[in-house]
Each structure stands twice: as structure tokens, then as C-alpha cells.
Amino acid sequence: MLRVKSLFCERDDRVLFRNLDFHLSEGQAIQVQGSNGSGKTTLLRILCGLNTDYTGDFFWYDQPMAKSWPQFRESVFYLGHAPAINKTLTAEENLRWYCASRGLKNDISISQALAFFGLQGYEEVPCYMMSAGQQRRVSLARLKLTNASLLVLDEPFTALDKRGVQELEAMLAGFVAEGGALLLTTHHPLQLECPLQVIDLDKYNTEAEAQW
């Protein structure tokens, strides 16, 4: 569904990656690896259309992305470093606005989604009163509400406790097994019950000199 062709990105005169090619299809998971500052977040943001400092092409169902942004936005779920949770609003208000702003109509209710991430009884609690891990869980509860077929997750395991990590891994594996596509970065040793392809960005920034 998503194909990336000879992607090149440079930041502050430093090549982050060059000649990056990969292909992500339904029922597949890709983990983007690399040391700090290797451009993992930048890559995910480029693919989501949030960063435009790149050259190269990418395609959504074999259509150039420039033409298929609307369809792409319908089917992608992005979770970045920032939790996208307004701290003065309660968990439920945050999620309700998320659903409304994306026009989502759900089979499961917001409180069910929160309960799945262990936050039953926290619906009415303002997010500034929650711990970092709980805020992350509110953020992740969107995974239950979205109808996206591609998940783009930037360090989703940050601040989660051990059980939370296991539950999220199980949930992501289930999502991929049902035909979803997953693209994530993490420094956490992943134990996904599904085939996982690894892209190491450190390998894509050095061959530059050899080519010139």
C-alpha cells in the first residue's frame, strides 16, 4: 500500500538518509531503527506529510502521494512524540474531539476504549492530573477508536509500564494479523507475534561518499 522510492533527506547539512527504498503492504510490520538523531522521527513525519524537506517519491496504492493525500489521511493513524492530549481537558473530552475532528463513528464507546488501556474510572479526570504513562494511555486509546489501515507510531512504548508494553504489543500484532500495516520506531526490544521487517537508518547515511 505504501511504497517509498529513493527518498533523500538532509538536515543542517547532514545527510539523514539517502536512496531509501521500501515497501509496506497489508499485514506487514516495519520497525525503523537507528541511533539517536538518525532521522527516524523525520522519516515518519515525511511519510505523514508533516515534513517536506526531502526529495524522492512515495506512493499510496501505486498513486503518487501528491494526488492521494485525501485517501491517505483517511487511512493513516499517526502518533508522534507529543501525546496530542490537551491537559486541561478530561480523557473523554480529548477523545471525543479526536473522533469528531476525524468524523469517526465507532462501534465501541470512548469509555470502552479507555478501559481497554486500563483507564476505567478516569474518563472525567483532567489529563494534567494524570501521570505520564496514563497520558500516554489516553493517547493510545485512540488506536481503539480509529478505523485506519496504516499505523505510524513514533516511540509508542514511551512511559508505559511492563504490562502496558505487553498489551500494546499484543494489540499491534493482532492489528497486523487482521491485515493492517504498521510502521513504528522504538528502542524497546520488540516482541511482536508477527513478521517484522527492520530498516536500519544508520546504513542509509554513510554510502553517500562512496557514490560520489
Binding site: 505523514c48 506529510g49 508533516l50 485525501p70 489521511r73 483517511e74 493513516v76 499517526y78 508522534g80 512524540h81 507529543a82 501525546p83 496530542a84 492530549i85 490537551n86 491537559k87 479526536y98 475532528s101 476525524r102 468524523g103
Partner: peptide, 22 residues
């Protein structure tokens, strides 16, 4: 400001709904 800092702005920009009306 607040939306920019907590990342809600990115979600807004990625919404499939027309950004114009949002």
C-alpha cells in the same frame, strides 16, 4: 500555541476532514 506544543496541531493537519472548516 497549546495545540502546537502538545501535538494536537499535527493531528489537526492530518485530519481527513477539510482543514478549511476546522
Amino acid at each position: 500555541r497549546a495545540d502546537y506544543e502538545d501535538g494536537s496541531l499535527e493531528q489537526l493537519l492530518m485530519s481527513p476532514q477539510p482543514l478549511y472548516f476546522l
